[in-house]
Design a protein around this nucleic acid. Structure first.
Lengths: 257, 257
DNA sequence: CTATTTATGAATGAATGCAGTGTCAAGCGA
DNA sequence: TCGCTTGACACTGCATTCATTCATAAATAG
């Protein structure tokens, strides 16, 4: 890039962008998860650097991180290649998430909820109630539910108060379709999307109920079972892959079974 | 470094060293885990680059990876700082390892062992028998046991056949004292080291027994309990921190309780 | 016409130069 | 003597340059 820009960066930095490194990392990860690259495609530094308006250095830094996250893999002949994800990989990652979130739920149950925690979780559930109140599921209500869902899982993790657990789940969630809300949109096109959300919402309620009663094993089992919905959604996505492609471009990252 | 060296690199590369990037990453991680830097210490690029005989670029790359691994943290004012690890963090990571290895054991039990797998695991246990056969524990026997221990856990993970699980455990094991064999040496100075190894070895045997009988829940419970020895060793290390410092320099990475 | 070899070019890995900023210390003022 | 200010040094972040390697394509030989 041009040499005169540093003065501009200060301005950019104030506007919320920290550095080229993090900006490139976030934007590149976003591109990948939006399916901008085909599996197996060579990720050349120069075009990407130009596309993100940075030099090759921060792009290389981002690649190092993305490789750790498992989104790209380094080619033996140098450079990086877009990864493909098999169905088994995603399924396995969902299973791992089940185990880890089960652990989180158990820990919270065992440690007990403070008054504040209880209020936060209940607020969260209330938002879900509101999102699902109407008999017809609008797009906005859908977005609200997804946000609530993320918040519920984040709160559980936060209250579990285990940094290693948080790290493990965050790594796991980097894989496409492994995160809690990643598979939710798959049913939004079909009419029965609301049905599924009602089911998962009820599961949330049961988990909180178990936690409140300090039933650790029950909370754990419920949280593990909770991810089965994600697995079903994934299967649905595979079966209707061709129609869903337009809605979820990241589906192209899944290798054909 | 000097420009004329590339010709030499080719030679080095043939000798097993892949690239500056990986070499610097491995060596720097090694330095960190050997306690070469004090917690909170600023990790300046230039001295480290000179120390590892590379330029600043691969060092920066390595920092990016090590930050992902949680060994260093980026300072808000730029650059990287050596992390300190609290006892709770290590304890939590050991708990996470217990849950993940419990999952691995359960998966292997549920999927069943092939003849080959069974032989591999039994070979592994036999090596442990041999290492512990003598009434007195020599240093060599100790090393053999540690190697066997690593192999046992690796085999379990391999047979579980779940890439996400492997990734999660590997990330977890990057933390000092969180990995399976990381806390084993702590008792080696004391006389009762062999006692503990006998206990963990027996646990291995029980886990395999449960797996062979496809008792998934039992295998999982045993694997979870198995990490308690690590937690005890960690406590022992904290209590005898001052004497053990010479044996395990990485102990200085633990922040004072 | 096909296969092998060579040559050219593009892209990576590594090093270095440059600008900006943070930090530390010394000096000055109160 | 203590605190504040200012200046200098050092270090980071980024861009760019350089050398090597890999891949692709073309040309020649069989």
């Amino acid at each position: 890039m041009m040499r005169g820009l540093p003065a501009l960066w200060a301005e950019i930095r104030v506007n919320g962008m920290q550095s080229q490194q993090s900006r490139v990392l976030v934007q590149l990860r976003d591109l990948i998860l939006k399916g901008a690259f085909a599996p197996g495609e060579r990720l050349a530094e120069i075009p990407i650097a130009e596309r993100l308006d940075a030099s090759r250095t921060p792009v290389r830094l981002a690649f190092a991180t993305l490789e750790q996250e498992g989104l790209v893999q380094s080619s033996p002949s140098g450079g990086y290649v877009m990864r493909a994800f098999t169905r088994k990989e995603i399924d396995d990652a969902i299973a791992v998430r089940g185990v880890l979130e089960g652990m989180a739920a158990r820990l919270v149950a065992e440690n007990g909820l403070t008054r504040q925690m209880q209020e936060d979780m209940n607020d969260c559930l209330r938002l879900g109630d509101e999102a699902l109140a109407a008999p017809e599921l609008t797009i906005d209500a859908y977005a609200d539910y997804v946000e609530m869902n993320n918040r519920f899982h984040d709160l559980l993790l936060k209250f579990a108060d285990n940094a290693a657990l948080t790290r493990a789940i965050e790594l796991n969630n980097r894989l496409p379709f492994a995160a809690a809300s990643a598979t939710l949109p798959m049913h939004s096109s079909t009419g029965d999307g609301r049905q599924w959300l009602l089911i998962t919402h009820n599961q949330h309620r049961s988990i909180l109920h178990a936690i409140e009663r300090r039933e650790g094993t029950r909370a754990q089992a419920l949280a593990m079972e909770h991810v089965e919905v994600a697995r079903m959604n994934l299967r649905h996505a595979y079966e209707t892959a061709d129609e869903s492609r337009g809605l979820m471009p990241a589906l192209r990252l899944l290798s054909r079974p």
